[in-house]
Design a protein around this nucleic acid. Sequence first.
DNA 1: GTTATATATTAGCTAGGGCTAATATAATAT
DNA 2: ATATTATATTAGCCCTAGCTAATATATAAC
Lengths: 110, 110
Amino acid sequence: MHAFDILSDPVRRRTLELISQKEHASGEIVMVIQAEFGISQSAVSQHLRILRDAGFAKVRKEGAKRCYSIDPAGFEDVQTWLDQLRRYWGSKMESLATEVERGKRSLTAK
Amino acid sequence: MHAFDILSDPVRRRTLELISQKEHASGEIVMVIQAEFGISQSAVSQHLRILRDAGFAKVRKEGAKRCYSIDPAGFEDVQTWLDQLRRYWGSKMESLATEVERGKRSLTAK
DNA sequence: GTTATATATTAGCTAGGGCTAATATAATAT
DNA sequence: ATATTATATTAGCCCTAGCTAATATATAAC
């Protein structure tokens, strides 16, 4: 499954948003996702597996709980591909400054 | 259709690679895609429509030909979402330097 | 006008992704 | 050991994205 396929699902994107901020137990994720999407524990668990397998999420065992956190590895291919594209049309870009500013912001953002 | 759905298809990604380097007529794109994926002119045309509608591609009429080029607009949501995620786990990232370097490279790349 | 070329659109089929329901596993508590 | 809590797995269903085949449109050439 390609990296972009992983990100094409709204439940998985929301899950990544959650675990990008702080580590979360599976159960916590299930609660939030169920509230927002109305799907089963099983469905969420299946999404978590996909995120693990694709290198977007890491798991840590804590007793019976499984704590999920973001794994940057999965995003590498995605960002590389996007950067590759920009390498070409970026040169003709009207506002190269936009790009520069984005870079600065992502570094200085509190 | 969400921006990530657009990028989740390999034919569309390849098409974006093509038109990111230089403008291409529909026919040229069809040739390349047919050679690599073995799908019909119709299928390619349908993908081009999706890319247009989602703001990833622009068209210019030149006689009977339709010349496609990259439209940066479509990528904004994608990059914004990725940046947003990184804003959190980026702080804990072992190599923030990587991020800085990427920024520099994308600007100075020949 | 007719023909040829270039591209787009539509109807209909199909495979696969995402879901539920049921079940299995794994750790903790009693 | 048994029950309880927390999570994962599996089988099977359904819907939709992406395809083909056929057809329509639009420009250019004759």
